[in-house]
Amino acid sequence: MNIFRLCGDLSHLLAILLLLFKIWKTRSCAGISGKTQLLFTIVYTARYLDLFTSFVSVYNSVMKIVFLTASYGTLYLMFYKFKPTYDHNHDSFRILYLIVPALVLSFIIVHVYTVMEILWTFSIYLEAVAIMPQLFMVSRTGEAETITSHYLFALGSYRALYILNWIYRYYTEDFLDWITIMAGIVQTILYCDFFYLYITKVLKGKRLSLP
């Protein structure tokens, strides 16, 4: 554990809690992509099956359980409790275009051919692109609520901080995992456009709207 990873994890946690808070407080999931949330739930489920097979630390296990619970909770709020507020007309990205390539790639580039390892790899590849339906939705509606922008910023920062963590781990403990590194870089690049808008607009008190 180093400062970059801890900040990354906290940023990730903050993002997930911010989203739940927004939906609960406004009693609406307008502007949130249910497809991205579904993809994240698939990601956590595929990756954290190792809760049953390997133990790293109490910290890791607790975080995994929190991420899983929060993601299923978000789906419950979006597709059941506040379903009428879900803006499905603007949430039209085809997620099979993300799931199928991620699945195929996880059979091609994987460390070890075991079911658990392929599921883990699939979750890494899928996570890298899971935000695309949400970014697509923002580009279609041309705007995002401020709290949604904070959510996206925290979620994007998490993987960027993980990249710093991997650089640090490479120098301090010779740790090198090309699968997570390449996927993490792709994931962070996808947010770059949004980061620019966030810094130039949201941080100056303006609403995030596209020209």
Binding site: R5, D9, H12, R47, D50, S54, V56, S57, N60, M63, K64, F67, H111, V112, T114, E117, W120, Y162, N165, T180
Partner: peptide
Amino acid sequence: PVTEIDHDEL
């Protein structure tokens, strides 16, 4: 033997 990889990150 199949190597088990311990993924220690989240």
